[in-house]
Amino acid sequence: MRKPLLTKDEKKAIPFVLPGVLVTALLIVYPLVYIFVMSFSENGVGQSGFAGFTNYIRLFHNPQFTRAVSNTLIWTGYTVVISFFLGFAMALLIHMKGIRLKGIWRSLLFIAWIIPGVVKATAWKWLFTTDGGMVNHLLMSLKLISGPVPWLTSPAWAKTALIIVQIWATAPYVMLMMTAGLQQLPADLYESADLDGANGFDKMLHITLPMLKDVSFICLLMLLVWAINEFALIWTMTSGGQNTTTLSLLIYNQFKVLNLNFASASAVMQLCVSMIFAVLYTRLVLKEEKQ
């Protein structure tokens, strides 16, 4: 007997998967092909002679590109790691035995994540003003600093200020996901661990963390995506000045002046970085599923 073209599962799956996949493809395949082609084209709109690797070579010789790559790595590294641990810590705090009104605390803390990007960036830019900004005013009246800190006007501080705001905005997401995860943990596991005489650290290492592996993956992935792609926040607060230009901003600056081939080459480079993370992630998740 010949093997049927489609298995029974496949026949069922197609009508469900196809619409969603097609719509997504419709939205991203053209842009992807477009930037890929443009990155190998000579400059100009609608004139697209083949340019080989010229655009990429130009890119690597642009001092701004090198700085943007290193800024992106620093920015992503700090925001992802700190947001993750801070969010997790917040979740553990709320989850503590004896804390009342868990839902209220959770909601209040989550508000930071909901505020529209432009709004929070504008507000923070203002709060971080060196002269007459609320942050400096508060820190000075608490005697934590002696003079105003040039938050957004010195290369040394600008990155820190941006990282603080990104953490402020994204840690609540981790907090929410983690509290959601913690709620689902079966209490009997802890009870039996208590009977075995396990201490808090043991329980954390052997029960809590492994059980939260999936939700942690989701959180880390989202944090990565947000960090690499963040645009509105940096654009509003520093416009990429004070050495805070990331790849995302570099691409926007190029697209804005219709430097399409150069912008596309930068975009392809950024996609390569994202792709590495995406492949790693699906590997991990799919491997899990097969087990």
């Binding site: 001092p63 701004q64 040394a156 000045g241 600056n253 190029q254 002046v257």
Partner: peptide, 21 residues
């Protein structure tokens, strides 16, 4: 032609000079 690419570079170094770094 490429002024828009040059401006951010100029701006960045003005900032470095003004902040004293």
């Amino acid at each position: 032609t490429r002024w828009a690419e040059m401006e951010p570079i100029i701006y960045e170094y003005i900032q470095y000079a003004v902040s004293g770094s």
